[in-house]
Write a protein that binds this DNA or RNA. Structure first.
Lengths: 114, 114
DNA sequence: CGGAATCCGCGCCGATACTG
DNA sequence: CAGTATCGGCGCGGATTCCG
Protein backbone atom coordinates (compact mmCIF):
# COMPACT_ATOMS: atom_id res chain seq x y z
CA UNK A 1 0.00 0.00 0.00
CA UNK A 2 1.11 3.47 -0.88
CA UNK A 3 1.95 6.31 1.47
CA UNK A 4 -1.08 8.29 2.49
CA UNK A 5 -2.13 11.44 4.31
CA UNK A 6 -2.06 11.29 8.11
CA UNK A 7 -5.79 11.24 8.72
CA UNK A 8 -5.89 8.50 11.29
CA UNK A 9 -6.80 10.63 14.29
CA UNK A 10 -10.53 11.41 14.52
CA UNK A 11 -9.68 14.72 16.22
CA UNK A 12 -7.54 15.60 13.23
CA UNK A 13 -10.41 14.84 10.95
CA UNK A 14 -12.69 17.10 12.95
CA UNK A 15 -10.13 19.89 12.86
CA UNK A 16 -9.99 19.38 9.14
CA UNK A 17 -13.73 19.62 8.71
CA UNK A 18 -13.74 22.77 10.83
CA UNK A 19 -11.06 24.34 8.68
CA UNK A 20 -12.99 23.35 5.59
CA UNK A 21 -16.05 25.04 7.00
CA UNK A 22 -14.26 28.27 7.88
CA UNK A 23 -12.40 28.50 4.61
CA UNK A 24 -14.89 26.73 2.36
CA UNK A 25 -17.71 27.84 0.17
CA UNK A 26 -17.79 29.91 -2.94
CA UNK A 27 -17.06 33.40 -1.67
CA UNK A 28 -14.96 33.25 1.55
CA UNK A 29 -11.56 33.30 -0.10
CA UNK A 30 -12.34 35.94 -2.71
CA UNK A 31 -13.66 38.14 0.10
CA UNK A 32 -10.61 37.67 2.30
CA UNK A 33 -8.43 38.32 -0.70
CA UNK A 34 -10.29 41.48 -1.55
CA UNK A 35 -10.02 42.86 1.96
CA UNK A 36 -6.35 41.94 2.17
CA UNK A 37 -5.81 43.69 -1.13
CA UNK A 38 -6.99 46.95 0.28
CA UNK A 39 -10.74 46.99 -0.06
CA UNK A 40 -12.20 47.87 3.30
CA UNK A 41 -15.64 49.23 2.51
CA UNK A 42 -18.71 47.14 1.76
CA UNK A 43 -19.26 48.64 -1.67
CA UNK A 44 -15.58 48.38 -2.57
CA UNK A 45 -15.49 44.71 -1.66
CA UNK A 46 -18.72 44.11 -3.50
CA UNK A 47 -17.52 45.73 -6.70
CA UNK A 48 -14.18 43.92 -6.52
CA UNK A 49 -15.84 40.51 -6.63
CA UNK A 50 -17.74 39.91 -9.87
CA UNK A 51 -21.01 38.09 -9.41
CA UNK A 52 -21.43 38.40 -5.66
CA UNK A 53 -24.68 39.82 -4.28
CA UNK A 54 -25.14 42.03 -1.24
CA UNK A 55 -26.96 39.19 0.43
CA UNK A 56 -24.05 36.80 0.11
CA UNK A 57 -21.43 39.40 0.94
CA UNK A 58 -23.29 40.41 4.06
CA UNK A 59 -23.75 36.84 5.18
CA UNK A 60 -20.15 35.81 4.53
CA UNK A 61 -18.70 38.91 6.17
CA UNK A 62 -20.73 38.09 9.26
CA UNK A 63 -19.36 34.57 9.40
CA UNK A 64 -15.81 35.69 8.80
CA UNK A 65 -16.17 38.18 11.62
CA UNK A 66 -17.62 35.57 13.96
CA UNK A 67 -14.67 33.31 13.20
CA UNK A 68 -12.28 36.13 14.00
CA UNK A 69 -10.80 36.30 10.51
CA UNK A 70 -11.79 39.90 9.93
CA UNK A 71 -12.82 42.84 12.08
CA UNK A 72 -15.71 45.20 11.54
CA UNK A 73 -15.65 48.76 12.85
CA UNK A 74 -18.43 51.26 12.43
CA UNK A 75 -17.71 54.97 12.11
CA UNK A 76 -20.75 57.05 12.94
CA UNK A 77 -20.31 59.45 10.08
CA UNK A 78 -23.07 60.59 7.83
CA UNK A 79 -23.59 58.52 5.91
CA UNK A 80 -22.29 55.69 8.07
CA UNK A 81 -19.01 54.11 7.00
CA UNK A 82 -17.95 50.63 7.98
CA UNK A 83 -14.41 49.29 7.79
CA UNK A 84 -13.54 45.65 7.32
CA UNK A 85 -9.98 44.61 8.07
CA UNK A 86 -7.99 41.40 8.37
CA UNK A 87 -7.19 40.53 11.97
CA UNK A 88 -3.83 39.41 13.29
CA UNK A 89 -5.47 36.04 13.66
CA UNK A 90 -5.99 35.82 9.93
CA UNK A 91 -2.25 35.16 9.70
CA UNK A 92 -2.64 31.58 10.91
CA UNK A 93 -4.59 31.28 7.75
CA UNK A 94 -1.40 31.79 5.74
CA UNK A 95 0.08 28.28 5.69
CA UNK A 96 -3.17 26.64 4.72
CA UNK A 97 -3.68 29.15 1.95
CA UNK A 98 -0.16 28.56 0.66
CA UNK A 99 -0.56 24.78 0.87
CA UNK A 100 -3.83 24.91 -1.01
CA UNK A 101 -2.46 27.16 -3.73
CA UNK A 102 0.49 24.80 -4.06
CA UNK A 103 -1.85 21.85 -4.32
CA UNK A 104 -4.14 23.63 -6.73
CA UNK A 105 -1.31 24.53 -9.08
CA UNK A 106 0.14 21.02 -9.04
CA UNK A 107 -3.33 19.67 -9.58
CA UNK A 108 -3.97 21.96 -12.55
CA UNK A 109 -0.78 20.71 -14.20
CA UNK A 110 -1.67 17.13 -13.39
CA UNK A 111 -5.10 17.50 -14.93
CA UNK A 112 -3.87 19.40 -17.98
CA UNK A 113 -1.41 16.62 -18.74
CA UNK A 114 -4.16 14.28 -19.89
CA UNK B 1 -2.85 47.46 8.10
CA UNK B 2 -2.14 44.03 9.43
CA UNK B 3 -0.26 41.25 7.67
CA UNK B 4 -2.45 39.15 5.47
CA UNK B 5 -2.46 36.01 3.34
CA UNK B 6 -0.78 36.27 -0.07
CA UNK B 7 -3.85 36.10 -2.26
CA UNK B 8 -3.00 38.83 -4.68
CA UNK B 9 -2.49 36.70 -7.76
CA UNK B 10 -5.73 35.73 -9.54
CA UNK B 11 -4.10 32.48 -10.67
CA UNK B 12 -3.38 31.68 -7.04
CA UNK B 13 -6.99 32.30 -6.19
CA UNK B 14 -8.11 29.96 -8.94
CA UNK B 15 -5.71 27.28 -7.73
CA UNK B 16 -7.17 27.77 -4.30
CA UNK B 17 -10.72 27.35 -5.48
CA UNK B 18 -9.69 24.23 -7.39
CA UNK B 19 -8.12 22.76 -4.29
CA UNK B 20 -11.22 23.62 -2.33
CA UNK B 21 -13.31 21.84 -4.88
CA UNK B 22 -11.19 18.68 -4.89
CA UNK B 23 -10.97 18.48 -1.12
CA UNK B 24 -14.27 20.09 -0.23
CA UNK B 25 -17.72 18.83 0.50
CA UNK B 26 -19.09 16.72 3.26
CA UNK B 27 -17.67 13.29 2.50
CA UNK B 28 -14.39 13.60 0.55
CA UNK B 29 -12.07 13.69 3.54
CA UNK B 30 -13.78 10.98 5.57
CA UNK B 31 -13.61 8.75 2.49
CA UNK B 32 -9.94 9.40 1.86
CA UNK B 33 -9.28 8.82 5.52
CA UNK B 34 -11.15 5.54 5.50
CA UNK B 35 -9.29 4.25 2.48
CA UNK B 36 -5.95 5.34 3.91
CA UNK B 37 -6.85 3.59 7.13
CA UNK B 38 -7.09 0.30 5.38
CA UNK B 39 -10.61 0.05 4.04
CA UNK B 40 -10.36 -0.86 0.39
CA UNK B 41 -13.71 -2.41 -0.41
CA UNK B 42 -16.90 -0.50 -1.16
CA UNK B 43 -18.82 -2.08 1.71
CA UNK B 44 -15.98 -1.60 4.15
CA UNK B 45 -15.68 2.07 3.32
CA UNK B 46 -19.42 2.48 3.52
CA UNK B 47 -19.69 0.89 6.94
CA UNK B 48 -16.73 2.87 8.27
CA UNK B 49 -18.44 6.18 7.56
CA UNK B 50 -21.62 6.62 9.61
CA UNK B 51 -24.42 8.29 7.72
CA UNK B 52 -23.11 8.00 4.19
CA UNK B 53 -25.33 6.43 1.52
CA UNK B 54 -24.28 4.21 -1.36
CA UNK B 55 -25.33 6.96 -3.70
CA UNK B 56 -22.99 9.52 -2.16
CA UNK B 57 -20.13 7.09 -1.71
CA UNK B 58 -20.38 6.01 -5.31
CA UNK B 59 -20.48 9.58 -6.56
CA UNK B 60 -17.60 10.79 -4.40
CA UNK B 61 -15.41 7.80 -5.18
CA UNK B 62 -15.91 8.54 -8.86
CA UNK B 63 -14.82 12.14 -8.41
CA UNK B 64 -11.83 11.20 -6.29
CA UNK B 65 -10.77 8.72 -8.95
CA UNK B 66 -11.19 11.30 -11.72
CA UNK B 67 -9.00 13.68 -9.78
CA UNK B 68 -6.36 11.01 -9.40
CA UNK B 69 -6.56 10.87 -5.63
CA UNK B 70 -7.51 7.22 -5.49
CA UNK B 71 -7.32 4.26 -7.84
CA UNK B 72 -10.01 1.73 -8.59
CA UNK B 73 -9.18 -1.78 -9.69
CA UNK B 74 -11.72 -4.47 -10.51
CA UNK B 75 -10.97 -8.12 -9.85
CA UNK B 76 -13.21 -10.39 -11.89
CA UNK B 77 -13.87 -12.80 -9.09
CA UNK B 78 -17.25 -14.18 -8.25
CA UNK B 79 -18.70 -12.15 -6.80
CA UNK B 80 -16.79 -9.20 -8.22
CA UNK B 81 -14.42 -7.42 -5.86
CA UNK B 82 -13.25 -3.86 -6.32
CA UNK B 83 -10.26 -2.32 -4.60
CA UNK B 84 -9.92 1.36 -3.84
CA UNK B 85 -6.44 2.59 -2.96
CA UNK B 86 -4.71 5.92 -2.40
CA UNK B 87 -2.46 6.85 -5.32
CA UNK B 88 1.08 8.14 -5.08
CA UNK B 89 -0.40 11.42 -6.16
CA UNK B 90 -2.50 11.58 -3.04
CA UNK B 91 0.75 12.39 -1.24
CA UNK B 92 0.79 15.95 -2.55
CA UNK B 93 -2.35 16.14 -0.54
CA UNK B 94 -0.30 15.77 2.64
CA UNK B 95 0.83 19.36 3.27
CA UNK B 96 -2.61 20.82 2.72
CA UNK B 97 -4.12 18.27 5.05
CA UNK B 98 -1.53 19.04 7.69
CA UNK B 99 -1.98 22.78 7.30
CA UNK B 100 -5.73 22.47 7.59
CA UNK B 101 -5.53 20.24 10.64
CA UNK B 102 -3.14 22.74 12.20
CA UNK B 103 -5.49 25.58 11.41
CA UNK B 104 -8.51 23.65 12.61
CA UNK B 105 -6.91 22.86 15.95
CA UNK B 106 -5.76 26.43 16.52
CA UNK B 107 -9.17 27.61 15.53
CA UNK B 108 -10.91 25.26 17.93
CA UNK B 109 -8.81 26.63 20.80
CA UNK B 110 -9.43 30.18 19.66
CA UNK B 111 -13.18 29.63 19.59
CA UNK B 112 -13.28 27.74 22.87
CA UNK B 113 -11.52 30.62 24.62
CA UNK B 114 -14.61 32.81 24.48
C1' DC C 1 -23.57 53.82 2.12
C1' DG C 2 -24.42 49.44 4.35
C1' DG C 3 -27.12 46.46 4.75
C1' DA C 4 -32.05 43.52 5.89
C1' DA C 5 -36.18 41.26 4.04
C1' DT C 6 -38.60 38.58 0.84
C1' DC C 7 -39.38 35.49 -2.85
C1' DC C 8 -38.09 31.58 -5.29
C1' DG C 9 -35.58 28.18 -8.34
C1' DC C 10 -32.26 24.72 -8.66
C1' DG C 11 -29.27 21.35 -7.28
C1' DC C 12 -27.38 18.73 -3.46
C1' DC C 13 -28.17 15.00 -1.07
C1' DG C 14 -30.97 11.47 1.56
C1' DA C 15 -34.21 7.44 1.23
C1' DT C 16 -35.61 3.67 -1.13
C1' DA C 17 -35.75 0.21 -4.59
C1' DC C 18 -33.63 -2.43 -8.01
C1' DT C 19 -29.64 -4.79 -10.96
C1' DG C 20 -25.50 -7.61 -12.64
C1' DC D 1 -20.70 -7.42 -3.46
C1' DA D 2 -20.79 -3.14 -5.93
C1' DG D 3 -23.11 -0.36 -7.45
C1' DT D 4 -27.43 2.35 -10.59
C1' DA D 5 -32.19 4.53 -10.84
C1' DT D 6 -35.67 7.34 -9.35
C1' DC D 7 -38.10 10.44 -6.40
C1' DG D 8 -38.44 14.19 -3.45
C1' DG D 9 -37.31 17.74 0.39
C1' DC D 10 -34.94 21.45 1.61
C1' DG D 11 -31.56 24.62 1.96
C1' DC D 12 -28.10 27.42 -0.59
C1' DG D 13 -27.80 31.20 -2.88
C1' DG D 14 -29.46 34.54 -6.77
C1' DA D 15 -32.65 38.60 -7.91
C1' DT D 16 -35.04 42.20 -6.30
C1' DT D 17 -36.84 45.53 -3.14
C1' DC D 18 -36.78 48.28 0.86
C1' DC D 19 -34.77 50.72 5.03
C1' DG D 20 -31.85 53.84 8.40
Amino acid sequence: MKRCPPLGDPAALRALQDALYVVGGKWKLPIVQSICNGNHRFRDIERSIPGITTRMLSKELKELEMNGIISRTVHADIPVTVLYEPTDYSKVYGPIIMAMIEFGLVHQQKMKAR
